[in-house]
């Protein structure tokens, strides 16, 4: 839920409340990662590195459901709906445009919740490897998760042979989103 403020508050205050939204969302990704079979058998160092490089991408997948590409609106969990134009004032215009485009593509695949969860697990373990020590262990985990995702998707929709590859094609999109936007600035007031 994100209490993006009514017009009465300054954009600085709006931005601070928006920034606060990320903290619980990041913590949920950490808990999600720990529930991925095999993730906690990686070294602690590698778990932290994967989370640092992959969490933004997992958040982008999670936030997709908030975006309505047809109406160009974002509805936060507290029910507040904002048009793209009103959110542009927060200075996240380019990220929002990219998010609408990404959520349209991912949304068109109509994934079930468990398929989406498995996809997010693949997203996390497919994150940048530059800081990883035991690369082979991460590669093995990624391979197992991709195999599980493929068998779940093909067993559910055997007639759609392109669905799985379309889904994997979202991974480079996410990496681009990450490279372009994870350096966006957040602001926190320190009282």
């Amino acid at each position: 839920s994100c209490p993006v403020a009514p017009a009465s508050r300054s954009s600085q205050e709006v931005w601070e409340s928006f920034s606060q939204c990320f903290t619980p969302a990041v913590k949920e990704v950490v808990e999600f990662a720990k529930s991925i079979p095999g993730f906690q058998s990686l070294s602690q160092h590698d778990q932290v590195m994967l989370l640092k490089s992959g969490t933004f991408q997992v958040l982008m997948v999670r936030f997709c459901s908030l975006f309505d590409p047809k109406e160009r609106t974002v509805t936060f969990l507290n029910g507040q709906t904002y048009s793209l134009a009103s959110l542009r004032a927060l200075g996240m215009g380019s990220l929002l445009d990219a998010m609408f485009e990404f959520s349209e593509k991912l949304g068109s695949l109509c994934l079930e919740p468990d398929e989406m969860a498995l996809f997010m697990a693949v997203v996390l373990v497919s994150a940048d490897r530059s800081g990883i020590v035991e690369v082979a262990a991460v590669e093995k985990l990624q391979e197992n998760l991709i195999k599980a995702l493929r068998s779940l998707i093909t067993s559910r929709r055997p007639e759609d042979s392109t669905l799985f590859s379309k889904l994997l094609l979202r991974l480079p999109d996410l990496r681009t989103l990450n490279n372009h936007h994870s350096d966006k600035l957040l602001a926190f007031r320190i009282d």
């Binding site: 920034s19 990320f22 950490v30 989370l51 994870s182 007031r189």
Partner: peptide, 25 residues
């Protein structure tokens, strides 16, 4: 006067992850 701390999204994410793992050690 109010002071503000500005950090990138990536740094904010890293900070929370480091804190979480440090707490659970």
């Amino acid at each position: 006067t109010k002071t503000h701390r500005v950090m990138t999204l990536a740094d904010h994410i890293s900070h929370i992850i480091t804190q979480d793992f440090a707490r659970n050690q």
